[in-house]
């Protein structure tokens, strides 16, 4: 079959819109909201909605930048550790080096980019597997954060102007929500409306094919990983501003929450298929579930444990459900291009 580039809308053209993963996920989110609004205590208040958003921004940001990486068939396990390292270095620059918060912030994003560039160097230049590289830097960056602070030093007493980023409201939304909106819109356009995004899918389907087709595979990968590092730096700022303290354990385990959001959002873990809005819905589904459970009186005391379990169940169900549409599409008497549809949804290495 011809290379490369199955456009997203073509990939699933055989799947009716109401059977698409993202649609089903949106329905799930809707059902969650309806259930918790009727059973939960003060679930539907504006305050609580703001809470959900506030607490999800960092994971949302990490999940957003994780999506292009997974689209290429890669993964970045180090984003949570980059967040931690950036948080303590931000604290260090502000408190010990005397930088004003905005300058320390800019430098922090730069540091995040450097961390991403280090990953990118090993992955794109030396062609090492992303899983192994970022598993290593996952420990490396967290270890650096702990070394910088000796594990005990914590940065606090940040000025109000900086804390506004984590606790304030801007035009009706929590301040940091605007960062998420900008990142989401920017990435959506990049991934779904530009050739750049299409090239990522192609790399995910077949890196060798993409190379033959003349795509600058290495450059694309570098962009993805550096972007992930930079955005992890941004997340470090919102995290520190929300919490008021920067410590070496900031963002511990966030990489897995982010990956959960991405995969739940319908991105194929081996690459090639996935959407930005799916990721947003995936993150929202998990965040609303976790928050909603703490609001149902009979479940309040086991909400933490239960939300972990239910997230797992939803994830498995969602992945199983993801197979249904393609099965149905496969049975349907073919419209125009049933063969290519079937091949590209089930065996995307076409």
């Amino acid at each position: 079959m011809n290379l490369p580039s199955p456009h997203p809308s073509q990939t699933r053209s055989g799947v009716r819109w109401y059977l698409r993963h993202e649609t089903l996920l949106a329905v799930l989110v809707l059902v969650e909201i309806l259930i918790f609004a009727s059973l939960g205590r003060r679930f539907g208040t504006a305050d609580n909605a703001a809470n959900i958003v506030r607490h999800s921004v960092e994971i949302g940001l990490l999940a957003l930048v994780m999506t292009p990486i997974i689209l290429t068939g890669g993964i970045d396990l180090s984003v949570g550790s980059v967040l931690g390292l950036c948080a303590v270095l931000f604290g260090k620059l502000w408190r010990d080096a005397g930088f004003p918060p905005w300058l320390a912030g800019v430098a922090t994003i730069g540091i995040g980019s450097l961390c991403g560039a280090f990953n990118a160097l090993l992955i794109a230049r030396f062609r090492l597997p992303p899983l192994i590289v970022t598993l290593g830097t996952f420990s490396l960056f967290r270890g650096l954060a702990e070394a910088v602070t000796q594990g005990v030093d914590a940065f606090t007493n940040f000025p109000e102007s900086f804390l506004f980023l984590g606790g304030g409201q801007l035009a009706g939304l929590p301040t940091q929500a605007w960062i998420l909106v900008i990142a989401a819109v920017g990435l959506w356009i990049t991934v779904h409306r530009m050739t750049f995004g299409r090239s990522l899918r192609t790399i995910g389907f077949s890196p060798e094919g993409a190379r033959f087709a003349g795509l600058p595979v290495e450059r694309r990968l570098v962009t993805c990983y550096v972007l992930a590092g930079a955005v992890a730096g941004v997340a470090a700022l919102t995290y520190t501003a929300r919490f008021g303290t920067a410590k070496a354990d900031a963002g511990m385990g966030y990489e897995l929450f982010a990956i959960t959001g991405v995969v739940l959002g319908g991105t194929r873990i081996l690459g090639g298929v996935g959407t930005i809005h799916g990721t947003l819905l995936g993150v929202a589904a998990v965040a609303i579930l976790a928050n909603g459970l703490t609001r149902v009186p009979s479940l309040m005391n086991i909400a933490g444990e239960l939300s972990g379990m239910l997230t797992g169940i939803v994830l498995v169900l969602a992945l199983a459900a993801g197979l249904v549409p393609s099965m149905i599409a496969a049975r349907r008497p073919a419209p125009r291009d049933s063969l290519s549809t079937r091949n590209s949804t089930t065996t995307p290495s076409a």
């Binding site: 649609t23 949106a26 989110v29 809707l30 909201i33 309806l34 609004a37 003060r42 679930f43 539907g44 208040t45 504006a46 609580n48 909605a49 959900i52 809005h277 947003l280 819905l281 929202a284 609303i288």
Partner: peptide, 13 residues
């Protein structure tokens, strides 16, 4: 749809 969801959270009570 996503916007509707958001609206539901923020506005439904």
């Amino acid at each position: 749809l996503f916007l509707v969801c958001l609206g539901l959270i923020t506005g439904c009570s």
